[in-house]
C-alpha cells in the first residue's frame, strides 16, 4: 500500500508489572481503511495490542504512532483527541445498566459536550445503522447479547472515529448473531474506517478473508493478507 500507515508499531515491547510479557518486539504497519484480525491463543498479546493503541497501556519500549503522532508522548488534551478518533468495542459490551439503548449511545456524545440538538439528530441515525432503532427504549438487561453488542458498536462509532478497535466482539454471542455483527463491522469498514479486531472466531476470520496478524507469546508469527484462521491450540 502506498498510503501512509494510520497505525505504526516500531519494535514495541510491553512487559507488565508482574513480568508478564504482553508484546515482544512487535513492528507492523496498518493502513487507513484496512480490516485487520488479531488472532492467537489467550495471553498471546491481542488485548495488549489493542490497549496500547488507545493508550490504556503504555509500551515498555518501542514507539507507537497513530496518525503521525507518537502516542506515548501525548499530553492529556492530545490523548483525548486520540480517543475521540478511536472507537472501542469490548467482549463484555460495557454498557451502562441504568440507561436505555438510546441513552447509552447518546451518553458518548453528551460527555464530549455536544449540543442536545446534535445528539437528537445523530443518535437515531446510528441506532438505524446498527439495526436497533426498534429497541432504543430498552435497558441492557432487556436486550440479548447480540443486541447489546450492537448498542456498544453504535456507541463506539457515534463520534465517527477513524479507527475502530474490537476485542472479541463476537465472543459473547451465538454464531448467527456473530455473522450479523460482522456485517455491521464490514459496513463501517466500507466507508473507510480502519478496523482492528482481536478474535477467536475461526469462522468469521475465514469467511471475511481479511488481513490476519497472528500473535504467539507476544510476537508476530504470521502477517498475511487475505489470511485464514489457522491457529492451532
Amino acid at each position: 500500500m502506498n498510503q501512509p500507515a494510520i497505525v505504526r508499531l516500531e519494535n514495541v515491547t510491553k512487559v507488565y508489572g508482574n513480568k508478564t510479557i504482553g508484546l515482544d518486539h512487535v513492528s507492523t504497519n496498518i493502513h487507513k481503511g484496512e480490516f485487520v484480525f488479531l488472532v492467537g491463543a489467550s495471553g498471546a498479546g491481542k488485548s495488549t495490542f489493542l490497549k496500547l493503541l488507545f493508550r490504556e497501556e503504555k509500551p515498555t519500549s518501542g514507539k507507537i504512532y497513530v496518525g503521525n503522532k507518537n502516542i506515548s508522548l501525548l499530553k492529556t488534551k492530545e490523548l483525548n483527541m486520540l480517543r475521540k478518533n478511536i472507537g472501542v468495542v469490548f467482549q463484555d459490551f460495557r454498557l451502562l445498566e441504568d440507561r436505555t439503548a438510546y441513552e447509552n449511545i447518546a451518553y458518548a456524545m453528551e460527555v464530549l459536550g455536544y449540543m442536545k440538538k446534535d445528539i437528537m439528530d445523530r443518535v437515531p441515525k446510528i441506532l438505524k445503522k446498527v439495526g436497533m432503532q426498534h429497541r432504543q427504549e430498552h435497558y441492557p438487561q432487556q436486550l440479548s447479547g447480540g443486541e447489546q453488542q450492537r448498542i456498544a458498536i453504535g456507541r463506539a462509532i457515534i463520534n465517527s472515529p477513524k479507527i475502530l478497535l474490537a476485542d472479541e466482539p463476537s465472543g459473547n454471542v451465538d454464531p448467527s448473531t456473530a455473522v450479523e455483527i460482522m456485517d455491521i463491522f464490514k459496513e463501517i469498514n466500507s466507508v473507510g474506517t480502519t478496523i482492528i479486531m482481536a478474535t477467536h472466531d475461526r469462522f468469521i476470520v475465514d469467511q471475511l478473508a481479511k488481513r490476519v496478524i497472528e500473535l504467539k507469546k507476544g510476537q508476530v508469527v504470521r502477517d498475511q493478507e487475505g489470511g485464514r484462521y489457522t491457529y492451532e491450540s
Partner: peptide, 17 residues
C-alpha cells in the same frame, strides 16, 4: 466507575470527567 470508563474511552476531557 462505569460511566467514568466510558467517558475515558470516548475521550472526554478531564475537566468533564
Amino acid at each position: 466507575r462505569k460511566e467514568i470508563q466510558v467517558m475515558k474511552y470516548v475521550g472526554s476531557s478531564n475537566s468533564f470527567i
